[in-house]
């Protein structure tokens, strides 16, 4: 569950960035002569959908459909009551409720006359999506996309800077605390700074980094901070003594 700040700062990531990304996706569709691209998205597998649309399913799952010649459509497992908020932080203008993802997708395909679909990274589709899609009359084709661009790298750099700056200030404060207590300090600092999500791992006595479990950190420990800033993850590890 994402419970940090999910937002879209258009000065930081202008709409033109997403237009360029969609254009790349559409170029791939043209290359393969496919009418639309399907992108699966859930609370953990959100990177690809976020890159293309800034959409983050903070809970539940969704399918993103990028037609070759029409605006993207979100097939959304979340309640229509949150659609205004989703529209405020993504590029979507059309959102369809989809408590059952694949039937809603097939309905869309039927409406638009699509008998084929490109699927971003088809082998990684969850089985419960893959199976009914495979059994339908819509043929699915694996499509790969390069999801790296300058804007993506800049955001990842920002996430890394945020993690590094906070860790540098906070790291010495863990001496004499349990890993739980130190987690609390890091959570507060990172989420106040706008981190969307956080995974903290602690290493003591030369052990591999692991989630907090209530042990004293002593005066020699390492902390791995995986920090998500506006959909972009970076992992920074620092050790004490520095």
């Amino acid at each position: 569950m994402k419970r940090g700040l999910i937002t879209w700062d258009k000065a930081e990531l202008p709409p033109s960035v997403f237009e360029a990304r969609l254009a790349r996706a559409r170029a791939a569709l043209t290359e393969h002569d496919l009418p639309a691209l399907l992108v699966y998205s859930d609370v953990w597998r959100s990177t690809e959908g976020r890159h293309l649309t800034n959409y983050m399913p903070y809970w539940n799952r969704s399918l993103i459909v990028i037609p070759r010649e029409q605006p993207p459509v979100l097939l959304c497992g979340l309640s229509p009551r949150v659609y205004p908020w989703i529209k405020s932080v993504t590029i979507f203008e059309e959102i369809r409720p989809a408590s059952k993802l694949v039937p809603t997708l097939l309905q869309l395909c039927a409406e638009r006359g699509w008998t084929q679909l490109g699927v971003l990274d088809l082998p990684r589709l969850p089985h419960e999506v893959f199976l009914p899609l495979g059994a339908s009359n819509v043929e699915a084709y694996d499509v790969k996309l390069d999801l790296t661009d300058d804007a993506e790298l800049a955001m990842q750099r920002r996430a890394a800077e945020m993690a590094r700056e906070i860790l540098t200030v906070e790291l010495p404060k863990g001496v004499g605390l349990t890993d739980y207590q130190f987690s609390g300090l890091l959570e507060l600092a990172c989420r106040r700074a706008g981190a969307e999500d956080l995974v903290l791992l602690f290493g003591t006595n030369d052990s591999a980094p692991r989630p907090a479990r209530g042990v004293m950190l002593g005066d020699k420990y390492s902390v791995a901070v995986a920090l998500e800033y506006r959909g972009h993850w970076a992992r920074v590890t620092q050790s004490l003594p520095l």
Binding site: M1, R3, G4, L5, W59, Y180, Q181, S183, G184, L185, E187, L188, R191, R192, G194, P211, A212, G214
Partner: peptide, 23 residues
């Protein structure tokens, strides 16, 4: 809102929560 969530999240983690589902 996100500042309040940060405070609560920090409290829960300080006191041993592995994770927290929060809306």
């Amino acid at each position: 809102e996100f500042e309040l969530v940060a405070e609560v999240e920090a409290f829960l983690k300080t006191n041993g929560a592995e994770d927290n589902f929060m809306l």
